[in-house]
Amino acid sequence: MKRAIVFGATGGIGQAICQDLAESGWSLYLHYNSKEKTVEELVQKLFAKYPTQDFMPIKLNFETDDAQLSEFVKNLLPVNAVIFAQGVTNYGFLGDEDLE
């Protein structure tokens, strides 16, 4: 079975990627940091539509220490693909940005 991990699965782009991968037969790890309700709803929706596939939510804060990241990786089943759909948005004025 093909398995992927989608980092940022709760955002708009991440959810669309999860939908497309699930439709193509992929089982998924769905990463989230703070949007637990969103990821749970997405998992339920995908499982209802594709009951023979696995959809596993995983919580991870990227600001954690190396030991916790290593432990996180050890607990994953093998994956065939890794997708990064998460991002950070800084709101402000263009003139306030540092050129560097």
Rank of each mutant, 00 (worst) to 15 (best):
T10Q: 03
N75G: 09
V39H: 02
V43N: 06
E71L: 14
G92V: 06
D98M: 12
T10V: 04
M1S: 09
A85M: 05
G12R: 12
A48D: 12
K59S: 11
I83F: 13
T10K: 03
T89L: 15
C18Q: 04
E97Q: 15
T89K: 09
N80A: 06
E100H: 12
K45D: 11
T38I: 11
E41T: 11
S24F: 03
W26C: 01
E63H: 11
L46C: 04
S24P: 01
F84A: 08
C18I: 06
V88A: 14
L46Q: 01
G92Y: 03
V79K: 03
D66R: 14
V6W: 02
L77G: 04
F72V: 08
L21F: 04
H31D: 00
L21I: 02
T89N: 14
N90I: 15
E97A: 15
E63Q: 09
K2M: 07
E71N: 14
F84Y: 14
L30K: 01
F72T: 06
A4H: 04
Q86Y: 11
D96N: 11
E23G: 10
A16W: 07
N33G: 05
E23R: 13
K35P: 00
I13R: 02
K49M: 07
L77A: 15
I83K: 02
F93T: 13
V79L: 10
F62I: 10
G95I: 13
E97K: 13
L76D: 06
I83V: 15
A67P: 00
V43M: 13
E63P: 00
I83Q: 07
G8P: 00
V73H: 07
G8Q: 01
Q19F: 14
S70L: 13
V73L: 14
E23W: 08
A22F: 07
A67Y: 10
V82W: 00
Q15N: 04
Q86M: 10
M1W: 09
S24A: 12
K49T: 11
F47G: 01
G95S: 15
S27M: 03
E40N: 14
T38D: 09
K45V: 05
E40S: 09
Q68L: 10
T38R: 09
T10H: 05
E40H: 11
H31C: 07
I5T: 00
E41M: 10
P78M: 08
K35W: 02
E63L: 12
N61Q: 08
N80F: 04
D98G: 07
Y91T: 11
G92T: 09
Q86V: 04
D96H: 15
K2D: 09
T64S: 10
F47M: 09
K49D: 04
Y50H: 13
A81H: 11
D98K: 15
K45W: 08
R3N: 02
D96Y: 11
N33A: 08
Y50I: 02
V79P: 02
T38E: 13
G14D: 00
V6N: 03
F84Q: 12
T38C: 04
T89G: 08
F47E: 08
L99R: 10
A48T: 06
E71G: 12
E97Y: 13
R3M: 08
V73P: 00
K37T: 13
I58W: 03
E100R: 11
L28D: 01
D66V: 12
V43L: 05
N90V: 14
D20S: 11
I13K: 05
Q19H: 14
V6L: 02
E40G: 02
D65N: 08
T52C: 04
N61Y: 06
G14L: 05
A85P: 02
